[in-house]
Amino acid sequence: MPWRWRWGAAFTTGAALVLTTGCGTVAERRTAAMDAALDFERALGARDGAAVCAMLAPSVREEVERSARTACEEGVLTEEVPSAAPAADDIEGVDVSGRQARVVFPADTLFLSQFSGGWKVIAAGCTPRPQRPYECLLKGG
């Protein structure tokens, strides 16, 4: 192989590795974020406090326990986050950038972040505000 092609092949391989390793491909991360969002919404719809809390980021769990003054599993069900039991087709929009994601359902918008245990919800029950961050019923302190 001529040296120019070798450099080209090495560069292409390197670029492909950068795009596909570590956090997985964009498509894989998008699917994983959607699955986590669906699991969260289904757990909320089923009023399964333990499953809901398992999907929350540590800081959100702590905030639920602090504000409800009880265990997350109980406290999270007292929050008035809109719940449903959605299917993947109900998702209106997914944005994934690096380790952060936003998943939009008809009745709720979630923000998620990637942790070593998978995608976790960092904010739920969010409604948009012009030129300002979303207002969220459930988020970290």
């Binding site: 950038s97 690096g98 952060q100 936003r102 972040s113 969010c126 948009p128 979303y134 988020k139």
Partner: peptide, 15 residues
């Protein structure tokens, strides 16, 4: 745009 959107999402803002 990827870095900006990552920060936007971290701050609970639209990408």
């Amino acid at each position: 745009v990827a870095a900006y959107n990552q920060e936007q999402l971290r701050q609970l803002q639209a990408p």
